[in-house]
Nucleic acid binder design. Structure first.
Lengths: 209, 209
DNA sequence: TCCTCTGGATACCCGCGCTATCCAACGTAG
DNA sequence: CTACGTTGGATAGCGCGGGTATCCAGAGGA
C-alpha cells in the first residue's frame, strides 16, 4: 500500500508518518523507484503499536525507538531482548535525584534475593527508585510489608505468560511483554483507583458525619 | 526557613522553587516584609511531594497542580476530592484517538456493573481507553478474562486502605491515595517486570536452544 | 558603608512531538 | 504529449512543557 492508505487505515496524518520514518520508528517501505514505496501490513501494525504506546501508554518517542531497536536487533538473546524492551518502556533512571539511595539499593537487592530473582538490566534500579520515592514520603516500603504487591505481581506475570508466543517469534514475544507491562499496568492502575473509590464509601473507612 | 534552606533540604534549585511558586504548585511563604518570607515544614513536604511525582511518577506539572488544587479546595467532599485527585494523576483523556470506542465504553460499563462499582469522575473513561488499547492490538480485553487483574486491584486497594488516615485529615488522605496509585503502581509495574523476566527462564516458557 | 542575600518579576532556552513547505520524480486523464 | 495531482524525501518552523538566567530593589550583617 502507499502512504496515503497507511495514513487512512491507521488514522495517522501523513506528516506524522513521515516523522516516524525520519526518527526510525517506522522502517522505510520497499522502494520502487524514486517516488514510490510500498508498505505492508507489518508497517500498519507497527504504526498502530506506536500510536497506542504514545496515546495510551504516554511513552516518549525516544523510548519507543529504543524498544523497537531492541526488537529489530536479531543478535539479542530472548532474555536480553525482554530486559531491553522493559527498560525502554520504563521511565528514565537518569532523571532521578541522585541523593543517597544506597539504602534503597540494598533494600531492592534484599527483595530480589528473597524471591531468588536475578535482575538483568536495571530493573533493580527501577525498584530502588520506587522504594526511594515511597520512603522519602514516609510511606511503608519495608520489604516485608510488600508481600501483597509481590503476590499481585506474580499472579499477573503468571497470567500473562500464556499469552506469550513461543520465543521463536521474538518480536511478537517482546512486544506482548511490553504491551502487557504498559497497557495492563495502566489497566491495573485504573482498577485500583476504582476499587479505592468504591472502598472509601464502604465499611472500611467510614466517614463520620 | 528561607528559600535557600528549603532549596538545600529538598535538593531543588532555587529557580525551580520560584518556578513552582509562580505556577501555584507551592504556596507562597508567609511574607515578612518586602524581601523576607518564611517557609515551614509544610512547604518542604509539598516540595518533596512535587519532586517525587515529577521524577518517579513522571506526572506533568499541570496535573500536579490540579491535584494540589483539589486538595486545597476545602469545599470538596472527601469522595469528590479522591476522584479529582485520581483524575489529576491519570493521563489526559482528551489526548486519545476518538475513533469508535463505543464498544469499549460498554465493556467498561459492564465491568463496573459486574463489580457493583459506580464510577465517579471519568474513571470509566480511563477504563474504556485501556480496554480500547488492548483490543486494538489484539490482546485479550474481555471482561471475563480480567478476573486476575480485578483480584489484584482489589487486594491492593484493600492493602492501602489501612494506610489512609481518617477522612478528617483530607489533604493527607487524598495525598496518600494518589501516591498509592502512582508510586505503588510504579512499584507494581517493576515487580511484574521482574517476575516476568524471571519467569521466562523458568519452567513456563522454555527457550529451545 | 559595602556586600551579600532575599523575594519577586520577566525573559530566555532547550527538547519533544509534531506540521508545513518545498521539491523533483513520476503516472495517469484527457 | 502535455497538465496535474501524488509520491517520497528533505528542511524548517511551531507550540508547549519545564525549567534557567537575568535583573531589580529592599534588608541585613561585617
Amino acid at each position: 500500500m502507499k502512504v496515503k492508505e497507511l495514513s487512512v487505515r491507521a488514522n495517522v496524518p501523513i506528516p506524522t508518518i513521515k516523522y516516524y520514518l525520519r526518527e526510525g520508528l517506522l522502517p522505510r517501505g520497499e522502494s520502487l523507484g524514486e517516488t514510490k514505496a510500498e508498505y505492508d501490513e507489518g508497517h500498519l501494525a507497527r504504526l498502530r503499536l506506536i500510536r497506542t504506546l504514545v496515546e495510551t501508554g504516554e511513552v516518549p518517542i525516544a523510548r519507543i525507538r529504543r524498544l523497537l531497536d531492541a526488537i529489530d536487533d536479531e543478535t539479542l538473546a530472548t532474555e536480553d531482548l525482554l530486559a531491553a524492551a522493559m527498560d525502554a518502556a520504563a521511565p528514565d533512571l537518569r532523571a532521578a535525584a541522585r541523593e543517597d539511595d544506597s539504602g534503597d539499593r540494598t533494600g531492592a537487592e534484599a527483595l530480589l534475593g528473597h524471591e531468588n530473582w536475578k535482575s538483568t538490566s536495571d530493573g533493580q534500579g527501577q525498584l530502588a527508585r520506587a522504594l526511594a520515592g515511597l520512603r522519602r514520603l514516609g510511606l511503608p516500603a519495608d520489604p516485608d510489608k510488600l508481600g501483597p504487591y509481590l503476590d499481585a505481581a506474580k499472579a499477573i506475570a503468571g497470567q500473562q505468560r500464556p499469552l506469550l508466543p513461543v520465543p521463536e517469534e521474538r518480536a511478537e514475544f517482546a512486544l506482548r511483554a511490553v504491551l502487557g507491562s504498559v497497557l495492563y499496568g495502566r489497566l491495573l492502575t485504573t482498577l485500583v483507583r476504582l476499587a479505592m473509590e468504591n472502598a472509601t464509601s464502604g465499611p472500611g473507612v467510614t466517614r463520620t458525619p
